[in-house]
Simulated assay, not measured.
Amino acid sequence: MTTAELLLHPVRLRVVKAFLGGRDLTTLQLRELLPDVATATLYRQVATLVEAGILEIVDERRVRGAAERTYRLRTDTTVVGPEAVAQMSVEQHRAAFAAFVAGLLADFDNYLERGDINPASDLVGYRQVALHLTDEELVELITELRELIARRMALSPEGRTRRLLTTILMPAE
């Protein structure tokens, strides 16, 4: 199974996203984060991600006779490289993007279902802008954004709110 096939399965994508930000999680914690996913499905998808090297076991302890494992995302294995992207068909791209957008919708629904929300004070935003850039200017912008985001990703989670930043970039008519 290719990395794209592994990561763009709807449940596996949600599992991977739960680990973003350097989180270590047990399956019990994943079940709490993804309560709509059947337990057997969650265990099966976690096992698939471990077998593929996407998740690694970082701790194991006995709890009431069973092994409780703590997992961590191996971020070096979660990138679909340019050669794999180039080999994807139009239908595979369409399915991948649909899974990606479905994950976004699930994240936003989870936020809305929290109850007492205030998008302004929670700093929730979604917007779209049009930029007129040459390919070289776009590469420069992407490089600058990567550097800026990497500095923030390196911050300790202590005393900070976990936030999801999602980008979609495409040419427009």
Rank of each mutant, 00 (worst) to 15 (best):
A66H: 14
E51C: 03
E136A: 10
P171F: 01
R163K: 10
I57Q: 12
V58Q: 09
E140R: 09
E113W: 06
T77D: 15
E147Q: 14
I57W: 05
R152N: 10
V85I: 13
L20H: 09
R12W: 00
T167Y: 10
V129I: 05
R62D: 09
E136G: 07
H93N: 06
N118Y: 02
T134Q: 01
R74E: 15
L169K: 05
L13H: 14
L34A: 03
R44H: 09
I142K: 09
E91W: 01
A102P: 00
A4Y: 03
L145W: 08
E137C: 01
K17H: 12
V16C: 08
L42N: 04
Q128W: 08
L34H: 04
R146F: 05
V139D: 15
E158C: 10
R14Q: 13
A99F: 02
L28R: 15
T75I: 06
L33N: 14
T2L: 03
L7Q: 04
Q45G: 11
D107K: 05
Y71W: 13
L133D: 00
V16Y: 01
T77I: 10
L131N: 02
V124E: 05
A102Y: 02
T77A: 15
M88H: 00
R23M: 08
V129W: 00
F19A: 12
G103H: 02
S156I: 02
